[in-house]
Amino acid sequence: MTDRAQVYARIIELIEPLNPKKVALTEDTSFAGDLEMDSLTVMDLVASMEDEWDIVMPLNMLPDLETVGQVADAVTRLVTK
């Protein structure tokens, strides 16, 4: 069983290589505003998460996921289905 704390910690690890400015990563860190990720980088991150947990993140879900915490919540829901 994967709990949210484990999911959150792993997401932080997956973001690190995509965070060249070394922005501090918190629950409220936003992908567009704080990390300045473009859509291609976001899709790379999504692919990494899908591979990590063997899940599929519906594309219609992505626009609602603006922060690291929101992504952790969404992945946790998908993993524990």
Rank of each mutant, 00 (worst) to 15 (best):
A32Y: 13
S39F: 14
L65H: 13
E50K: 01
V23F: 08
A47D: 13
L40Y: 09
A47R: 13
A47S: 12
I15G: 08
D34M: 05
R10S: 01
A24L: 14
S30Q: 15
T80Q: 15
M57D: 06
V42G: 01
L35F: 03
E66Y: 06
E50W: 03
E66N: 10
E36G: 07
L40G: 01
E66L: 13
F31Y: 15
L35C: 08
T29W: 00
K21Q: 12
Y8Q: 11
I11T: 06
V42H: 07
D54A: 08
S39R: 04
L18T: 02
R77E: 15
G69H: 09
M49L: 14
F31A: 10
G69Y: 07
M61L: 06
D28V: 03
D34Y: 04
I12V: 14
K22W: 01
M49V: 14
D51W: 01
I55Y: 11
Q6K: 14
L65E: 11
V42Y: 08
I12M: 10
M1L: 13
E13Y: 01
M57A: 14
L62W: 13
M57S: 06
N60T: 07
Q70G: 05
W53R: 02
M61D: 13
A9H: 06
D28M: 05
E50P: 08
L59N: 08
L78V: 11
K81H: 15
E50G: 03
E66W: 01
I15C: 09
R4S: 12
I55N: 04
I15S: 04
V46C: 07
S48D: 15
T67L: 06
K81L: 12
T26H: 00
I55K: 05
D64I: 08
D44T: 10
D44R: 05
R77A: 12
M37P: 10
